[in-house]
Amino acid sequence: MEHKPVIRWNPMTDSKESTRSDSFEQDAFWVRMILREMDPAQREECFRSLMVKYWRLVGVMVAQRLGNDRRDAEDVTQEAFFRAFRSLKQLSEPTAFLGWLLKIARNLATDHLRTKRRTVSLDALGESSAQLQGALQSRRSPEFEKAIELNEETTLVMRALAELPECYREVVTLKYMQGLDGREMARPLNEPEGTIRNRLFRALDKLRRSLDKQKACKS
């Protein structure tokens, strides 16, 4: 199988290691500037910088959780940034801003999903639970289907990714969206390096198994 060279949209994936660790120092700098309660214009500039930097990453994480519904993902992402900034004083380690933001986004996405499920079940009281389950399982916005042309391999990988437990999906997303390795992820996620590396290994193992199973089912 031939693999085409891939154009990376995220310059972070190509940057040097030092630049990546500087990136968390930069986050910490912005967080400290915000907390220092200086000039409101400067503080807003720091908010803006952090949002621009992590908007897409948080959006993708939330979209994965919400079944790739873009509008919902944007709403939840916006709310996650708002809540993170509002309670920034509670963040004990400024370099761990990213992990903290992702945790808030994850909780919000879970709440959103729960609310949505409740709404669906009330709206469709007449439908059988099997139909409902099916509707929820296959919930994927038509916008998403239209926006991307999925080739077979990508479809399989996305399905395998969706089946991954949250903690594994998170490290894989950070690896591919931010270009971080196990050691670098330990800092923003505020977890031991060994734990992160274990998650990466298990994620890879699960992905391989899941892809094997899907391919076997197809053939």
């Binding site: 693999h3 908007w55 991307i148 391999e153 990988v157 997303t173 969206m177």
Partner: peptide
């Protein structure tokens, strides 16, 4: 196999990143 998974993951995340679009 790991190489194939790696490339597919790259493609998937690029697709997802493109789908989300730049920050609004």
């Amino acid at each position: 196999e790991i190489g194939r998974v790696d490339v597919s993951l790259q493609n998937s995340f690029e697709t997802l990143g493109g789908f989300m679009g730049p920050p609004c």
